[in-house]
Structure formats: structure tokens, C-alpha cells
Design a protein around this nucleic acid. Sequence first.
RNA 1: GGCCUGAUGGCGGAGUGGUGACGCAGCGGACUGCAAAUCCGCGCACCCGAGUUCGAUUCUCGGUCAGGCCUCCA
Length: 461
Amino acid sequence: MTLTLYDTMARAKRPFVPVNPQRVTMYVCGPTVYNYAHIGNARPVVVFDVLYRVLRHIYGEGHVLYAANVTDVDDRINQKAVEEGVGIRVITDRYLAVYNADMAVLGALRPTFQPRATETIDAIVAMIGRLVAAGAAYAAEGHVLFDTQAYADYGKLSGRSLDDMIAGARVDVAPYKRHPADFVLWKPSKAGEPVWDGPFGPGRPGWHIECSAMIEQALGLPIDIHGGGADLIFPHHENEMAQGLCADHGATGYANYWMHNGFLNMDAEKMSKSLGNVALVHDLVAKAPGEALRWALLSSQYRQPLAWTDDVVAQARAALDSLYGALRRAADVVAVGDTPSEAFLEALCDDLNTPKAYAELFAIAKRLETGDGVERALAKGELLASGALIGFLQADPETWFHGGVDVALAARIDALIARRVEARAARDWASADAIRAELTALNVEVMDNATGATWRLKEPA
RNA sequence: GGCCUGAUGGCGGAGUGGUGACGCAGCGGACUGCAAAUCCGCGCACCCGAGUUCGAUUCUCGGUCAGGCCUCCA
């Protein structure tokens, strides 16, 4: 089984070969914690969580290091802190806690490292110092800028040349830049903004430098996989790579595989905080099971655009109903084996082809429904193990179908069902139907079977 | 303007140079006191034009449309 990943740099799928299979490294650009994350922000989190899980499966849990940064220095954070009259740490701690909780509901494992920019300042300052010493950066008017002309391959990742950028520049270029594409590594803080001391003057880091510093500090160059949203290819990742390599001339590379996920769209348009067309994860998890949201996020291959509608969530829930239904009907089957299906793993190893992997889950469920005793036992083991690999189907099926009903309501439902089972045993259809009506009014659907009945919430709680 | 994606059935969404996944929804049947589920079966698609080919949804070129990046952005 060969893992194949689409590499943005190569613009092709490539077999994945880690530098060191004992220590596979992955870095994914994380959130700026100044407000709630929207579901589009969650797509890379869930996508790269799947990759993280697949890598752990292949190389072993202790052999994969996954770092995702937390940007906690930023203009928007500063603004929010001023608005609320608190320090930035109050803001960033608050939204980081919400972020981590919401992502956990989506089934995302915590990265091995979650470094914060404010706790990486020393490494950032040191890296900028090395860039200046190497002649790849220069100071100007209190800023330190990266000299893009110092890096011959600048533009290689995003496929644009420095000449194109001059021609296409749509924004006024700061007069102190040697080249319009040069970008800030360090800038002076305005009054009231957080400030750190540096050899180039007091100030704060620019946007791109934290990732390079964190990668160097937490993982070391070159890393195996660098991930993020497609909008980060340029300028963020281009700049990261340029400064990261110029700061470490001994490095044989920056990232060996660059992976970028496509966007979530609202009405064919990119979901974006600046456009305001967002669905917040924090709101969604209150209305739908996190597992259903996760299923929806993975229902198209990660590089494809995904239109986010109520319908994708409803379809995700229906799909999970079907699989959990198969498990529920197989409650008395003792699962045999704990190995994911070969076909399932193969689909995932083909650049995380989750839709194809889903199809395999349904094929296994079919065997669970229709097979003989031995086949069912094997199918159940395979279904649970396959689901576990990418974070599905681990709940008790009854819990899934019962949703979040409280204990009192559950007890009342159980009592009604017990009475109905008795009525049916006595062939008292009138009473049985009356109780069904009563349960329907409680948003409960009863499913009769040979020995009794099970139930589910018709609409989400 | 430069660079880059994508266009598949009622919906979502894989994939393939030739028998056209999978899921949801729909239809028929089995089963069923009712209901649901399940099982069996059915229908429905590859943006337009040209080219290559015995044959293209799949390859090439052109076009149309949609979206993205070039400025904060997952």
C-alpha cells in the first residue's frame, strides 16, 4: 500500500516517502484566534486530521509529529482587545479554547504541538537576525524586510515570477521596499499594541515568519508535509519557504510535500470572514452532531470545492444513519478483527479519496446486513476499524439515534415503548397505535422488531 | 491584466479510452397488524465545438460558464 499525495509544488500526485519513517513531520497553518472559526476554517483541520490518522496508521502513533500554529499576534486581535479594554491574551485564550473545543467535536485529534506566536518570539527574532546576517533581509524605517531577490526560486510554489508581480501589483508599494514583493519580517508596533524587543528595534513579527520559526523549532527542516488552505499558497507559503530556506543554508529543503485544500463555498462563493458569508462551527455543532459535520466536510475530495448547504449536512446525517443502522441491527454480532478494509485504506492512500472510502464503508455495511454469521462478524470488525481510522462510527448506535435527549425524556420514551410492546404482544393494535402517536408527538419514531422495539429521534434534538 | 482550478444524473459525489462507483431522493416488488428499516429490482448524467482514435464523459485544441489567487483570508 503506497500513500500518494498531490504535491502543489510538483502539480502532480507523488508517492509519499518520508525523510525518516521513524519521525514523520507535518505542519498545518492554524487559526488566528480573534473570533469564532467558520466551517470553512474547519475543512483543513478535518482534512489534515484524516491525513494525520492515516500517517499514524502507516508509521505508528509515536512516529508522526504534527504541528499546527496558533496566531495570537495580529491586528484584528489588537482591535478586539482595545474594544473590550482587555489584554490580547484574554482574547486569544478565550477563542483558542472555543476553537479547540469545537474542533474536538468535529473529531479532530489535537496536534502534537500547538505553538503560539507570542511564545515563539525568541525563535522569530533569532531567525530574522540570521536572515539579516545572510543578506536576505534588510532594515528600513523601523521595519525588517525579506529581500525576495535573495532567493532565486522565489515564486516557484505559486507559479509566478517577480516580474509578473511588479506588473500585476494592485496595491501601493511601501517606498522603503527594495522590491515590491518584499515582505515584512518585523514591524514597529503602534501605540497601545503589544511590543517586543528586538535587535532591530521594538516591534512585533510580521505574518509569515512565525510559521518558519515554529517549523524550525518544533520539527526541523525539511519537514515532510506542509498543509493549509489554497489561499495560503501565495503569498504566505511562498514567503515562508523563501525565508525558511534563506535562514538555514544547510537545509536540503523546506517541505517535501505541499498540500492545499479547496474552499467551502456559500452559493458558489468562497466562505470568507471578510465577505461575511460564514457559518460558524460554534453554531453548527449546536444544531447537528459533530460526526455529521465531519462526514459532510469529507464528502468531497479535499482539493475540490465543497458547497456548504443545509442539504450536505442532512445527507451526511442520512449516510451515518444508514451505517449506524447496520451496526444497530448487528448489535448481537461479535465483531471479529480490528483491521480496516484494504479497499478503504487504498482509497485513503490515493490522495485522501474520502468519497471512495465512503463507498467502501457502504460496501462493508452491505456485507454486515446480508452476510452469514462469519461474514457478518468480519464485516462488523472491518466497519468499526475502518470508521475508527478516520474518526467515524465509534459511538454506541443507540446513542447516535437517541441524539441528545435528556435522561427524563429517555425514561418516559422507554416506558411508552415497554407498554407498546405489551400491547402488541396482546395484539391490541388500537393501544399500540395510540402509543405510537404519543411517541410521534415526542419526535420519536419506533422501529418494531421480532423481540421488541428500538427508537430514534425523527428530527435532531 | 497575469497565474490557477473546476464544469458528471433530481441532489451530493468518485472514476474511467470501450460492460458508465457510491450515497440521498424517486419508482416497482418482497417482508410487514400499522410504521420504519432491511432485501431484490428499475430509471436518470458526463458544458459546447473541433481534433486524435475502431471507439472519448475520459486525451488535445478552441470556446462558454463558474470559482480562486495576485490585498487579510482555511
